[in-house]
Design a protein around this nucleic acid. Sequence first.
DNA 1: TTGACATGCAACCATATAGTTGCATATAGA
DNA 2: TCTATATGCAACTATATGGTTGCATGTCAA
Lengths: 117, 117
Amino acid sequence: MSDVFAALADETRRALLDRLFVKNGQSLTDLHNGMTMSRQAVAKHLHILETANLVSVHWQGREKLHYLNPVPLGDIVHRWVGKFEDARIEALNDFKQQIENASNPSNASTPKEKRRA
Amino acid sequence: MSDVFAALADETRRALLDRLFVKNGQSLTDLHNGMTMSRQAVAKHLHILETANLVSVHWQGREKLHYLNPVPLGDIVHRWVGKFEDARIEALNDFKQQIENASNPSNASTPKEKRRA
DNA sequence: TTGACATGCAACCATATAGTTGCATATAGA
DNA sequence: TCTATATGCAACTATATGGTTGCATGTCAA
């Protein structure tokens, strides 16, 4: 379900989605074209995207065409992020308040040593 | 920048964000409380969330309080996903069309052998 | 000042992940 | 039918990642 985030965590996979965004319905060879890594590596990434339901495939003869699956990208991500999003403005206020409340006597924001990094 | 997705990829980290959503401004000890893993493990996860700018911290004496940082969660994720989102309905139509176009003569959706998995 | 509490740093371990290479299989076309 | 093309499967490797433990440091409160 929510390995959507794991699928999106990789730069190569995001790049693949980008390429499909530009031109939908590409084969593995198409998508591999121009990439530095091996065809197999690309295939693995595509499998991960497929498993995460971000990409749908359709065989056409010996070619496996890849399509952006627009549903889960919006649904899952938005559903999860939206929850936080809802409280966004509110949180911004709370945030400011709490920081200010927390800063009582002296300097409460920087510890003595070692804890600055 | 976009290691936000990597940060969100881990279940434990999403759980930590959930806990901060319920009660903002918790210390490491607070957040570790009830978890099965070690305090250090939790601390590492919090560092990752901090680095990804999903959580802001504020020292108060010997306690390091953690706050949901509402900005990047909305911004980065939405910005990236939104791009695909914009073309969502359109893509749904394209998707259907392309699938149908692709299905020309016989059955173009299932290869002979071995390629079903 | 002294002990308890809250956190950080560092070394270490096991497994997951991203990548490679080699070979097998299926389709298209001459 | 034979060859080139498109993909899949499997074994293997290196590094990233999530987790542990031990110890050091800083702060609070008696």
